[in-house]
Design a binder for these strands. Structure first.
Length: 511
RNA sequence: CGGAGUGUAGCUCAGCCUGGUAGAGCACUGUCUUCGGGAGGCAGGGGCCGCAGGUUCGAAUCCUGCCACUCCGACCA
């Protein structure tokens, strides 16, 4: 069996249709907005004056090929909505182009993963997509991997492959440059495109052949140290998913030949999920929130691990009905479906042994390093978030991953007063540092509303003659549908909290 | 890889059974009327009917082969 990230994230839907669960958005920003002081990093880190003006934030200049009708091939809701919202285009079975809107979301998710990995102490690298076959012969996996591995030959007839995962390569990198206990602990990660030649790709980006994935690898001198690295990644994942506005529950996973309880899959609850899940309903409410984490504190990280793994939460594979009933009071027992969006794994010396990745201990003994690997399905998350957060009109993006924070709908394009008011709102929101999509097309109101709903922009400012007569515009939440009139001059103040929330958890790191 | 389908305009599809030189809606262009939830009229543009053979006076239509895509299964585990 495969215990490796390369074997993760297959997807099989259970049912079609309605939305599942996403974390509720943070509080509606309208209340108290005018009196609430600006807080957080955003106010200082994004000087408005330094913002260039990308012209593509006006819809007439953007590339947003939305479809009114649903393409025939899309079976599940996230696939349908990604096609309709002009996020992706299929180029071959399981292979997609990311169009501007989809690319924006993908980059946002990727950025959050980068920030949280680095916050937790992992170091970014980038390994190639193409690998030599010899490396895989060394680990013995070249023949094991089968037809899922895309094998190619270069002009000199050398055997190469498009990487389905990178354990071999990262282990070689570590082995080459590290030899002492002083060189550990180390945690390296990369976000790279991978290819698995699935027999039957389906469900859009949820189970493509080419997919973007974060893989982190930890190197430690012994098991205890490796378990700490594992706990660090678990906490980092909790932060990562919370920032994306989704609830991904760590569930005990199969550990294969290594044994122990150190593999967890993170599942987003959604009715269309591929995995059967059983869990203590109380865990859904748990939040790491703004808890200060000392990433070197083994005790604290162990406590976080214990806190999140104590409640019963398992997939169908590891489910134990008797234990479930014993551990969880009946009213909190929940069974449903989930989409796997990450997996963390401690695998000891499985690769360091055959590949000879050792360090010398203070006592002069050469020992193989203890490793773990930690995957996040970056491109898959785009689909998973949509599965967990949509309605009959389209996508409902959590603020943190939304392609645009605010959309402006001009109800009477070409009308001097409406145009001027839109420009004023547009300028004010951009000035804050928010990313704004201004629908300046000469379209009817209904078409503009439908587009904004479909692409899931979390906040919409509606500007029309009716409101302007009273000097107000309308601010509407995509998620709740709740609206409120805002004096034109106050729009920036009212929207400021959005930026605070979005930038709130953003770490001071660069790639 | 087994089974079942589908390839016709940018998208959703009809036409194929029963061969006679290609259609609708949406989208697009122009125009008029509309204008707070995907409006309506008029006038236009757009297709080597997946590819290659074959049958026929004549093929989108019938036959053969190939290719691509989709669905079910197996696979992922």
């Amino acid at each position: 069996m495969s215990c490796l990230p390369g074997g993760l994230f297959t997807f099989r839907p259970h049912s079609r249709g309605a939305s599942g669960s996403a974390c509720p958005d943070p509080a509606f920003p309208l209340r108290h907005a005018l009196t609430r002081p600006r807080t957080g990093a955003a106010a200082t880190r994004r000087p408005a004056a330094a913002q260039p003006e990308p012209s593509h934030m006006r819809l007439t200049r953007y590339f947003l090929p939305v479809l009114k009708e649903t393409p025939a091939e899309a079976q599940i809701v996230s696939h349908r909505l990604m096609l309709r919202a002009g996020m992706i285009r299929q180029e071959s079975a399981g292979i997609y182009s990311w169009l501007p809107l989809g690319y924006r979301v993908l980059r946002r998710i990727e950025q959050i993963v980068h920030e949280e990995q680095q916050r937790a102490g992992a170091i970014p690298v980038l390994m190639p997509t193409i690998q030599p076959a010899d490396l895989w012969r060394k680990s013995g996996r070249y023949d094991d991997y089968g037809k899922e591995m895309l094998r190619i030959r270069d002009r000199h007839d050398r055997e190469m492959l498009y990487g389905p995962t990178n354990e071999e390569m990262i282990t070689e990198i570590f082995r080459t440059f590290s030899g002492s206990y002083r060189d550990v602990p180390k945690m390296l990660y990369h976000i790279q495109w991978k290819f698995r030649d699935e027999i039957r790709p389906r469900f859009g980006v949820m189970r493509g052949r080419e997919f973007l994935m974060k893989d982190a690898y930890s190197f430690d001198v012994d098991r205890d140290a490796a378990i700490h690295s594992y706990n660090v990644q678990l906490a980092a994942y909790l932060r990562t998913y919370e920032r994306m506005g989704i609830s991904a529950i760590p569930m005990r996973a199969e550990t294969g030949p290594i044994g122990g309880d150190h593999s967890h899959e993170f599942l987003v609850l959604a009715e269309t999920g591929e995995s059967e899940v059983h869990y203590d309903g109380a865990i859904v409410q748990k939040r790491l929130g703004e808890r200060a984490v000392d990433w070197d504190d083994r005790v604290q990280l162990q406590e976080i691990f214990d806190e999140w793994t104590a409640p019963y939460a398992r997939t169908g594979e590891t489910h134990d009905a008797a234990k479930f009933e014993e551990m969880v009071p009946e009213e909190r027992r929940v069974s449903g479906r989930g989409i796997e969006v990450g997996q963390i794994f401690y695998f000891g010396t499985k690769y360091s042994d055959p590949l000879g990745a050792t360090v010398t201990t203070p006592e002069g003994e050469r020992v193989p390093v203890h490793m773990g690997s930690y995957g996040v399905g970056v491109s898959r998350l785009v689909g998973a978030i949509i599965e967990a957060s949509h309605d009959e009109n389209g996508i409902i993006w959590p603020e943190s991953v939304a392609p645009f924070h605010v959309g402006i709908v001009n109800l009477k394009q070409g009308d001097g007063e409406a145009d001027a008011a839109c420009e004023q709102v547009y300028g004010a929101l951009k000035g804050l540092g928010l990313e704004v999509l201004y629908d300046d097309r000469d379209e009817r109101a209904g078409a503009k509303f439908a587009t904004m709903d479909l692409i899931g922009v979390p906040w919409r400012v509606t500007v029309g003659p009716r409101g302007l007569k009273n000097g107000v515009v309308e601010l509407t939440s995509r998620k709740t549908g709740e609206s409120r009139e805002v004096p034109l001059a106050d729009i920036a103040g009212v929207c400021a909290p959005i930026l605070d929330r979005v930038a709130n958890a953003s770490a001071d790191v660069t790639i």
